[in-house]
Amino acid sequence: MELRQLSVAGAWEVALDPRRDERGSFTEWYSVGDFAGVLGAPLPLAMAGVSVSRKGVIRGVHYVDTPPGQARYVTCVAGEVLDFVVDVREGSPTFGGWDSVRLGADHARAVYLSEGLGHAFTALTDRATVLYLCSAPYAAQRERTVHPLDGELALPWPVSADVASLSERDRSAPGLAEAGRRGLLPSFTAVRGLVRDR
């Protein structure tokens, strides 16, 4: 397992190392020791989830009120997705910036997103299966979203992305600037304090 810092501070691409033989493969996709060694602390695991999406589905840009925030560790175990990390933390040096990683069974990668970062992806294949490990449980009242087609973010969705597939919540979400005006975005300073105290 090898971690590489993405262009958005607090986000990492994780190169996995599948062990293959004539029977198939085994992949260790999370290791407490590797995370603690690079990030200074393990991911406090509070929830695991799975989503299955048809080709073209867009999910995100989702984040959680901070505090308490929610760090996420994500991989795709069947099919393929284009995964985005979006900096929605007001005051961050990379505010409004994003990075992307292609995840899938043939790519042996995962993405770690610190608290306060936004997450989105689109399924590039039918039945793309994404697994999540999260540092805090789901709480609907703390969940936030920025519109994934916001022109200010200008995420480069592939041609196969299906705008009609957006959930009602994502379709009605504000853009990044509007979310800021409404006071819905996390503070970079608050997130740094939260991560430092972990």
Rank of each mutant, 00 (worst) to 15 (best):
M1K: 03
L3R: 03
L3V: 05
R4N: 09
R4L: 10
L6G: 02
L6I: 06
G10K: 02
G10M: 05
W12A: 00
E13A: 15
D17Q: 01
P18Q: 11
R20F: 06
R20W: 04
R20K: 04
G24A: 00
T27K: 00
T27F: 03
E28T: 06
Y30A: 00
Y30G: 00
S31G: 09
G33Y: 07
G37L: 10
L39W: 01
L39P: 01
L39R: 01
G40F: 13
G40A: 09
P44H: 04
A48E: 13
G49F: 09
G49W: 01
K55G: 00
G56S: 10
I58T: 03
H62E: 00
H62L: 08
H62F: 11
A71F: 03
E80Q: 02
L82I: 08
D83M: 12
V85Q: 00
V86A: 02
V86K: 00
D87L: 07
E90C: 12
E90V: 15
E90F: 07
S92Q: 01
S92V: 03
S92K: 03
F95E: 01
G96C: 06
D99W: 11
S100W: 04
S100L: 03
L103M: 11
H107T: 15
A108R: 08
A108W: 06
R109V: 04
Y112V: 01
L113A: 01
S114W: 08
A120P: 02
F121C: 05
F121V: 08
L124Q: 06
L124S: 05
T125H: 07
T125Q: 11
R127K: 14
A128K: 05
T129V: 15
T129Q: 12
V130Q: 08
L133P: 03
S135G: 14
S135R: 09
A139Q: 15
R142Y: 13
E143Q: 15
E143W: 11
R144Y: 10
R144M: 15
T145Q: 14
V146H: 14
P148T: 09
P148W: 14
L149M: 13
L153K: 07
L155E: 10
L155I: 09
P156A: 14
P156E: 13
W157Q: 02
P158I: 11
P158V: 12
S160E: 14
A161N: 02
V163T: 09
V163H: 15
A164G: 14
A164T: 09
A164N: 12
A164D: 15
S165K: 13
S165H: 06
L166W: 10
L166M: 09
L166F: 12
S167V: 13
S167A: 13
R169T: 13
S172A: 14
P174S: 06
G175N: 12
E178H: 10
G180H: 08
G180F: 07
R181T: 15
G183W: 11
L185E: 08
P186Q: 10
S187H: 02
S187A: 02
F188M: 07
T189M: 05
T189A: 12
A190H: 05
R196K: 13
R198I: 13
